[in-house]
Design a protein around this nucleic acid. Structure first.
Lengths: 223, 223
DNA sequence: CCTACCGATCGGTAGG
DNA sequence: CCTACCGATCGGTAGG
């Protein structure tokens, strides 16, 4: 009997040891949707939303032309999902930076460096198509979609406002906090237009250049 | 006989006193083309190139759907013409700023201020759709069109490189000149995403904020 | 998720 | 610059 059970245990129907094997459809369910989001983000970034057809996206995901509509209501809903997922991932990364900085009880300069570095990674790092799509396809979103994303953006910008406010009050930045936020983020965001990975500066070097540009000589003490 | 000539001189065929009246077709020739460029720039900026139909453009110009193709070979050629005209106008304005600064024998700080102010005007001033279209529809241009525009862009950026180089050598900017150019222009270019004319800051105020951000305290003298 | 398909729209053209 | 039109493509759907 014990033998028989041991034999059964060797049979193909045995309980797997790793994570539970889902049936293939359930396994694909989220995977296929994620695959669509990834390839759509890449195509939207490279060609623009209007110039990308749902057939392009289906082909890049290895599907037939009608299949994306099994996962997403419309082409516009796919765009909104790309942008929202990108923004949620960016917020998570930013939260990690904020937590690390707070734990180390860092000065505002060091926190700003973390925010800049995280932002470059979100914009230019591996798998970074989602936020650039948001930046360049804002006008392709519906009013309702824009409102939902805008809430996440305000949360993201609040962290910048906080640290820039502190630096303005300390005299380390001379522009007003709002202008500083808009122009600093603009300087960083624009890098998606000219940055080529592997050619020229690394993201660490870009971060240092940005810090040098935004902050005056740190050895100077304000009056 | 003289009387008869006098009478003829009073007739509707007499020579007009102002600028010579061209026949209506010739008058419209350049006007209609310019009208198409203007409305196309506005629509491309607001809706994007791919999302704007040639019918939209024709309607906005008061024409029928096929008529834009009498003036431009294709939709893409119309985009290229918008971008090139925008770039040529920007270069002219920049040349005026350079000339005025040189005549006044200004320091690099003052020249930078002129370049920033001119750039804001080109980006955000009245009738400023052309350069934003270039910034946001670069990927919609063909390789050949991009090469032609890139030459004009290099000329435009050369002026920035010159003044930023001088400021870096003088220790007034700490980042390297190339990074400073990319990030400063990015900070300015990004304003097309958030600037609303008549609400908030004027272009003069924005210029001052940019100068405050890019340049450390002018009372400080480098070691 | 595929097959087969539809209605609408689009860039562009012939001929005047 | 208009009229009338074409071929291609596109987002999306019914039915399985």
């Amino acid at each position: 009997m014990a033998e028989a059970l041991a034999v059964l245990a060797e049979a193909p129907v045995r309980r797997p040891r790793g994570r539970p094997r889902k049936p293939p459809e359930a396994l694909d369910e989220g995977n296929r949707r994620q695959k669509l989001l990834r390839v759509a983000a890449r195509l939207f970034r490279r060609q623009g939303f209007a110039a990308t057809t749902t057939r392009d996206i289906a082909a890049a995901a290895g599907m037939r032309s009608g299949s994306p509509f099994y996962h997403f209501e419309s082409k516009g809903a796919l765009l909104a999902a790309v942008v929202e997922q990108g923004m949620r991932a960016a917020l998570q990364r930013q939260a990690q930076a904020l937590a690390a900085s707070q734990q180390a009880a860092e000065a505002p300069e060091a926190l700003l460096r973390r925010l800049v570095r995280t932002h470059f990674d979100v914009l230019l790092g591996p798998g970074s198509d989602f936020i650039p799509v948001m930046l360049y396809e804002w006008r392709s979103l519906s009013t309702e979609q824009r409102a939902a994303i805008a809430r996440l953006q305000r949360e993201y910008e609040a962290a910048w406002s906080g640290v820039l406010d502190a630096l303005c009050r300390a005299g380390r930045i001379r522009a007003d906090a709002r202008a500083a936020r808009l122009m600093c983020l603009g300087a960083l965001n624009w890098s998606v237009q000219w940055y080529k990975p592997g050619m020229g500066a690394t993201l660490d070097q870009l971060t240092e250049q940005a810090m040098l540009l935004f902050l005056p000589d740190p050895t100077r003490r304000p009056a």
